[in-house]
Design a protein around this nucleic acid. Structure first.
Lengths: 210, 210
DNA sequence: TCAATAGTGTCTGTTAGACATTATGGA
DNA sequence: TCCATAATGTCTAACAGACACTATTGA
């Protein structure tokens, strides 16, 4: 399952289900080839079949087996989620398209479960893996980055605090380029350049669901 | 894979590998029965085969397929991690025992990967799922709870801050029982009784690995 | 009585969020 | 010139961590 930021929302890549299936759209998938290909190899191959380029970040979401209808009547599906930089077009033909997760096309039950779990998994890993940076091109403005974080965590962030925290974590490095988009002052471009592991000890937090 | 707190460390339940395998110990496992059993059903069944009671929390870690040696020569293993309250004995016979994760018995490569991923997964979910409470009996002292958190996040916590945060999150409820263990003032017993979802907005954090 | 642990109040440095201000371009 | 956005400084309330203290038991 491939995700990308699209217009202030997270979007998922769906492909047209091959010939007359009941569902019009489905997640890209394939049967696992035997031999010594790892699960991740297979996931990369599936991703490349629907995209002009491979995703820049890929992680397993889990195995899914319950639910009645599933692509190809397989017993078990192993789902991966991959990040694709903003603005990446889907494959040339009209056989693939991005859909916001909030207004997906009807999917088979197992695929709906996969989408939920994968989005959840991306959100969970946001603080521990460079997912946000993989959803952006190599250079980006801090407003771009903040927008991606807001999409993933689902609420607005305070600009000054965001930048302060970012600076404190030494995660980005300024380039000497600036980009002007429409009105307003041009923004400086940054690149992802993590320096050191922040020894973040401070903070006992309980965000448990009730 | 089953975990429990054991003597200030997280411990994993291993069982003696059936007859003459090279490894003496292994994670409990079984082939998936066909029919309509879900993956979780199978995981519960495996857990119950090695424990006097079912684990009180269970979650899928993921699918594992790489690595040469794996139990029973299966192509793919779906791993689950389950929490077992502190002090639970392993199954009656001498065929199962708890081992601290830091000093495990030699395991097959795939099983080592599963243990690492499962422990990591428990740590990741600590703030979002009631794992810590599932590693304790229904009532517990706040020192017990703090000890579990310290085991899972890997470092000591500040007592007053821990209790303040706990109180703020309305996660526990005092009982009118007290327990005296050896010397020292007896501790009040609490139970897990989450009240409401804390609207935790404060906090932009970047704990990204470099 | 001493030792050990539980539980709490106060202080202080850190910091998230609010607000305001300047900077800089496009319309 | 307005207006929109970027970038940054200052203030304040919240809060994590330190410390100290009281409370209450067993040895």
């Amino acid at each position: 399952m491939l995700v990308t930021p699209l217009d202030r929302h997270l979007a998922v890549l769906l492909v047209r289900a091959p010939d007359g299936a009941l569902e019009r759209w489905a997640l890209p998938w394939s049967l696992s080839e035997r031999s010594d290909a790892t699960l991740e190899d297979t996931a990369v191959r599936v991703a490349r079949s629907a995209l002009p380029s491979a995703p820049v970040w890929l992680e397993q979401t889990g195995a899914f087996a319950d639910g009645r209808r599933h692509p190809g009547d397989v017993d078990l599906s192993v789902a991966f989620v991959g990040a694709v930089p903003v603005g990446t077009l889907s494959a040339p033909g009209e056989d693939a398209a991005w859909f916001p997760v909030s207004e997906l096309q009807p999917l088979a039950p197992r695929q709906r479960a996969i989408v939920s779990a994968a989005v959840e998994s991306v959100r969970l890993r946001l603080d521990y893996a460079p997912v946000a940076f993989r959803l952006l091109p190599p250079t980006f403005t801090l407003s771009d980055l903040q927008r991606v974080y807001e999409i993933l965590i689902g609420h607005r962030l305070h600009k000054a605090s965001f930048r302060r925290a970012l600076h404190g974590a030494s995660l980005v490095e300024a380039t000497d380029e600036w980009r002007s988009e429409g009105r307003g002052r041009p923004a400086q471009l940054f690149r992802h350049a993590p320096k050191r592991r922040r020894a973040r000890r401070r903070g006992v937090r309980f965000d448990l669901l009730p």
